[in-house]
Design a protein around this nucleic acid. Structure first.
Lengths: 220, 220
DNA sequence: CGCTACCTTAAGGCTGCCTTAAGGGACGTG
DNA sequence: CACGTCCCTTAAGGCAGCCTTAAGGTAGCG
């Protein structure tokens, strides 16, 4: 779950970055309209947290540009001006949700989870596949009812795979979901995490599609 | 856009009905949990506006029942208790959005539009021919419903053939689809892959057109 | 009957993945 | 502040599966 944060206030931006990281999101943060456009054009995000007031323009411009490019990435608007008219116009402009400042970090995280969930066409908050159950809100995983301790990276890999059971994720795609720009990885880290996941969750769950990537498959 | 309103307060319910009608929605309104369950089981709605406090139970029960039935209809929760904890739990329970009372009708309408917008789309482009089904998104192939494991090259050959069922593909054309311009192949690799495909998918599917190439043909 | 195009099979090489282990950083604890 | 723990990354070696190649066999076509 990779999220782009667009917020010019340094303190708020860092707060969001830290808070969402704690909630299990991978984050990239920018402060200007221009860099937001660039980031959105370059990387693929699962959601965007977008401040309306930016130094070099309005967040609505970013939103409009995104939608004009037929990009459906869920967008959560943040704004100080919290009037109903603002909300309505923001939502009708293509935003998916709206929060007025001051906001609560837990609520931002919950709304992002709801948006991401809906964007892949799923309704329930729990994700289940074979004997595995994953709870995004609690960042917890169970196998056949017994809890399994996963590290953060392991959890992130599993969540990505379970977001679309059966779909194939290339190693590059998984890296994109695990790491922001800063922290680029130049190795087989994903392979190692997959290996640890297989140890903890049993064989047969994560299939290798040689030359292409990984996916959830079979059962057991 | 057909919306189900679940709200026990008569005044609020009528207000929602009128307001949403003015905003262009078709509405059905019920007042109890039981009738909400019945309405959801019977009709198909594009969205649900759901009050949490109902005379004969909680709105969360309705929500849970809906999601357990694998119904993805977007749900907008309404509630008087507007604490952050409530919102977070509501969203993580499978609701798509959340509004505290008092709310503004325009905002309800805008949020419903945002929900409905997101819930459409997502079509899978399967290619089918005879008893073979190919899913480009998953890079998977089924024969008569049972999955068939193909290697990357084999899959590439089959996808090429199925992209235009019945059309003839020369070996050169197929090679072009399999290999970049860099890596030239000087052998009968394509023939071998065709052979493996026939083994896995059965005879009769891939026809040889002597001197010209291959194509999908016949059936079975 | 000979030629050509294609089929079939098997073997070798190579790419990509798995596995393991070591080093370093973050975090908590004494 | 030092120490221990956990986790994450990096790197190296080994293994397996796939792809290609090549050689011999078979069917179509004159």
């Amino acid at each position: 779950m990779r999220v782009l944060i667009v917020e010019d206030d340094d303190i708020l931006r860092d707060g969001l970055k830290v808070g969402l990281a704690l909630a299990g999101f991978t984050t990239d943060a920018v402060a200007t309209r221009e860099s937001a456009d660039a980031a959105l054009a370059a990387g693929s995000f699962d959601a965007v947290v977008l401040d309306l007031m930016l130094p070099d323009g309005s967040g609505t411009d970013v939103l409009k540009k995104l939608r004009d490019a037929r990009d459906d990435t869920p967008v959560l608007l943040l704004t100080a001006r919290d009037t109903v008219a603002d909300r309505v116009s923001g939502l009708d402009m293509g935003a998916d949700d709206y929060l007025g400042k001051p906001f609560d970090l837990d609520e931002v995280a919950a709304r992002l989870r709801a948006l991401a969930r809906r964007s892949v066409g799923r309704s329930t908050a729990l994700i289940e596949w074979a004997s595995i159950r994953l709870d995004p809100a609690r960042q917890s995983v169970e196998k056949s009812g017994t809890p399994v301790r996963l590290s953060r990276r392991e959890y992130a890999v599993l969540q990505a795979l379970m977001s679309q059971p059966g779909a194939i994720f290339s190693k590059t795609t998984l890296e994109d979901k695990l790491y922001g720009w800063q922290e680029e990885v130049e190795s087989n880290a994903v392979e190692v995490h997959i290996h640890h996941l297989r140890n903890k969750l049993g064989p047969g769950l994560i299939e290798t599609v040689r030359g292409i990537g990984y996916r959830l498959g079979g059962d057991n």
